[in-house]
């Protein structure tokens, strides 16, 4: 039920992509996302799409599953496509009333939509194949050089991982308190915005008290288990680069090289 909500959207499978070091996946995804902004040619998109499909194939995540990430941005996608289609100046192909569709508009719509789609899909491959815990660990290690500037890298990573554990619990609690207040005749739906906000108090206040109580309990439990910050901590699963991580690095570079060559030498 509600406890089954997962943050991010990990897809359980055994694949080379799943096994890659999270740091490689984070950096690789960043490189891929940046590469999408480096060209304006159809051939470049073809290369980017091919590379995405190649990684998707290796990850064993079904295609239908990978495109789920597009759902939340679907409206935005339509909207930007629409804007670009009608509001780009150039050679007019079709006129509907005051609206003009231009050749350049069609191209621009295709480019921008494709770029947006690939950005999302690229990022979701990472979240689909990396557990939230690994992502957190990867981030912590990647950002660890910032520690020399006294940035609280370990603490931020710890907070992220605690949030992962407690968000589902708090969602469930919200649901329970809401029902308990409804059983006392509370109404969370009707009325104008001001009224609605006021009606939220019986939900928000107990939730706040409960979150504080949980935070207090957890802090004590962490103390009791000898937590004293990141200093001197070891890990059950430390991150270290394996053979496939090196291979993955090479493949990333190959992709960049291939992209450069296609964009440089193909006409469109």
């Amino acid at each position: 039920m509600i406890r089954d909500i997962t943050i991010g959207q990990y897809y359980t499978a055994e694949s080379v992509i799943h096994r890659l070091d999270p740091r490689i996946k984070i950096v690789g995804t960043l490189i891929y996302m940046i590469s999408l902004f480096l060209f304006h040619k159809m051939s470049g998109y073809a290369a980017a799409i091919l590379f995405f499909l190649f990684v998707l194939f290796l990850s064993r995540v079904p295609f239908s599953f990978s495109v789920r990430g597009l759902r939340p941005i679907f409206l935005m996608l339509i909207f930007t496509a629409f804007l670009n289609l009608f509001w780009t100046e150039g050679e007019v192909l079709l006129r509907i009333g005051a609206l003009e569709i231009t050749k350049e508009g069609i191209w621009k719509m295709a480019y921008i939509s494709l770029r947006l789609i690939l950005l999302i899909l690229g990022a979701s491959i990472m979240t689909l194949t990396t557990t939230p815990n690994d992502l957190t660990a990867g981030m912590e290690r990647l950002l660890s050089p910032l520690k020399i500037f006294h940035a609280p890298v370990h603490e931020i990573a710890m907070m992220m991982s605690i949030a992962l554990r407690f968000i589902p619990i708090l969602i469930e609690e919200t649901n329970r308190i809401m029902k308990a207040q409804m059983a006392r005749g509370a109404d969370f739906e009707s009325g104008n915005i001001l009224r609605k906000l006021k009606n939220m108090l019986p939900l928000v206040l107990p939730l706040f008290v409960s979150a504080l109580r949980r935070a207090n309990d957890l802090a004590q439990a962490m103390d009791a288990r000898c937590y004293h910050g990141g200093k001197g901590r070891t890990r059950m699963y430390p991150l270290y680069f394996k053979g496939i991580d090196i291979v993955a690095c090479f493949i990333c570079m190959l992709y960049l090289a291939a992209l450069y060559l296609t964009v440089r030498f193909l006409p469109i």
Binding site: I177, A180, A183, R184, G185, P206, S210
Partner: peptide
């Protein structure tokens, strides 16, 4: 059909005891 949830003390939210108890009948 008055329903008291599990750990119902977690739903208390008013500043005073009497105000909290008035919440339900007030809504009726």
């Amino acid at each position: 059909v008055g329903l008291v949830f599990q750990y119902p003390e977690h739903q208390l939210f008013e500043e005073t005891v009497i105000k909290d108890v008035q919440f339900g009948p007030g809504n009726m």
